[in-house]
Design a protein around this nucleic acid. Structure first.
Lengths: 345, 345
DNA sequence: GTGAAAGCGCTAACAT
DNA sequence: ATGTTAGCGCTTTCAC
């Protein structure tokens, strides 16, 4: 391992000068800088990052906590998100430390170990719950962080999130524009912020369109296990929906299967919009109209926000909402029969 | 930030003693150890990892280079793999640094930056090509590493890999056992080691079963773009296959679609086996018989191997091959007509 | 423009 | 059983 001392010795200068030459200080002569550079090159010298960190008192590293197998089908999302974070880090010359959040022991070991010991300058916390103790923990300890996702409580922390409500409202507008009036909503566990906000968009759109809320048509808290039964149940209602919004790809898959079992044509008898784009969604039969999030870019931006925050901890609070886009594919069409109430006119 | 000095001052001992007490040296009295522990607790002291690394001359960190959006549909695999690596690291108390490999500039900046500067003690390189310059680079620089995947050349380095050939041979045995004789193979870019070995298994199985190789039935080098056309082409052959092995989920999807377009029933008219399990595969219509890899466990083992290697660089070379398992679902059945040549007997 | 000296926070000989 | 001293590799006052 060649150190700065070796370089200094090689060019017959002090380590100080070598350090300054290599770090582009302007008080070192061009000639010297060149000599030092050359020496560093021939000796294959690369500064020891650890020593530098100790001296500079920051690690030039950020931490990323990702959920561990929480929502299996969101895999694509997370991988692309991580890719974005990694790319942003690499571009700005900082290291990325990845830790997985144990489902249960969030504030415990996980966070504690990461925030202590000066291993990371800041933390990107993901998969925020409606009420998330990690936020409070980080605030209390004044540890620089950015959340990817939002709680539904007091939001006095920096975050970036997808505007799930706006996404669902776009989907609803699309469906309502096609003539649908009975639109079902299949959602995930509302304990997660993103799940809550998506449902919020559904309710809001209903209200905006003057449609009445039918409790039988909106089911939340669904998982991979309950999805098939609930989908069948909703489609089998006496007065069934003509369209359904599924808050995740596997929910849409369940709806698709239930429709097939009931002999319902998609999109003829039933329209489907799904939140979150994925191979499963794109390769479905038919390919599904989807609310699409810019996964990689979200990662890049989240990392960027955190890096800015780390650089200037007293910078103003940044809270960014990214509006997803609706990609219309082949699973949405006008309802077969005209809506019942229109015959009254 | 509270340092070891603060603790020492607080208990009225030297930093040395505090260090030894906290690191469980046996030459410190129980009473002292207790006092020190208590002080550390009340002062909320956590050793500075960076300082410790500088002193110990290793970083207790390993690096993981993952492919950046190379094979889009393998997302699930990589995420679970990363999860396994992260879990193993966390369990053994080391940090995980994640870097993405730019598709083109592999040996260039990417590796160089990671291996230099003492930021990681070892590297896990993935997605190995048939001939991969990164291996040579790491060997030349005597940098501790473990490969996840194999080259097809000289293998004088530690690796862990899935035995792709064995996997495909299992699939072939299953198909041949059902009575299939015309079995097509749809493969990926053979430049990647895993792709090469999978195809190898196909050829070997053909030979073992005494089946003749039909060039029209095996197509490799396929991507998301070329897959649909090639699948249609192969299924539309004058003497079409009764079964096909797809080396990736999106290839199987393409086959499924082509079959549907041609009015072929799966598995009645056409059996399909896919390499790699994924939501896309499980939710397909019908759910596909698949060659399944233990994604998370592969990550754990890969990390374990690297950590062992880092601990003892002169330990014997470990090369581990993991045999995947065949999961029989609903896409495989005996061929409709008895194989043509059997009528000759 | 360059160098000497101090120190980041910790561990590890080597005393005692 | 505890303390003294040195040093990991680097950056940074402060001199000259």
């Amino acid at each position: 391992m060649t150190t700065i001392k070796d370089v200094a010795r090689h060019v017959g200068l002090s380590v100080t000068t070598v350090s300054r030459a290599l770090n582009d200080f302007d008080d070192v002569s061009e000639a010297t800088r060149a000599r030092v550079r050359a020496a560093a090159e021939t000796l294959d010298y690369h500064p020891n990052a650890v020593a530098r960190r100790l001296q500079r008192r920051h690690s030039s590293t950020i931490g990323l906590m990702i959920p561990l197998v929480l929502h299996r089908s969101f895999d694509i999302f997370w991988l692309e998100f991580i890719g974005g974070v990694a790319a942003a880090c690499s571009q700005r010359g900082v290291d990325l430390l990845v830790a997985t959040a144990d489902a249960h022991d969030d504030v415990g070991q996980g966070l504690h170990g990461l925030t202590r010991g000066s291993r990371v300058d800041g933390l990107l916390v993901c998969d925020i719950r409606q009420s998330d103790p990690r936020i409070a923990y980080l605030q209390r300890h004044r540890f620089p962080f950015v959340a990817f996702g939002r709680t539904t409580e007091r939001q006095d922390y920096p975050y970036i999130d997808v505007d799930g409500a706006a996404g669902v409202m776009q989907a609803m507008a699309h469906l309502i524009g096609l003539g649908h009036r009975r639109i079902a909503y299949l959602g995930l566990d509302p304990a997660f912020g993103f799940s809550h906000y998506r449902f919020t968009g559904y309710m809001q759109a209903l209200r905006n369109a003057g449609l009445t809320y039918d409790a039988g048509l909106s089911r939340v808290g669904l998982g991979e296990l309950s999805a098939p039964a609930v989908a069948a149940e909703v489609l089998g209602l006496p007065d069934p929906p003509t369209a359904v919004i599924a808050a995740a790809d596997f929910l849409a898959q369940a709806v698709l299967k239930a429709a097939r079992a009931l002999g319902l044509a998609v999109p003829g008898d039933l329209s489907i919009v799904v939140f979150d784009d994925s191979p499963l969604v794109q390769h479905a039969e038919p390919p599904l109209t989807a609310i699409h999030q810019p996964n990689t870019r979200l990662g890049e931006e989240a990392a960027g926000l955190l890096l800015d925050r780390v650089a200037g901890p007293d910078s103003p609070l940044v809270q960014r909402l990214v509006v997803p886009s609706l990609i219309v594919r082949d699973s949405t069409a006008p309802p077969r029969e005209p809506p019942a109430h229109s015959s009254a006119y």
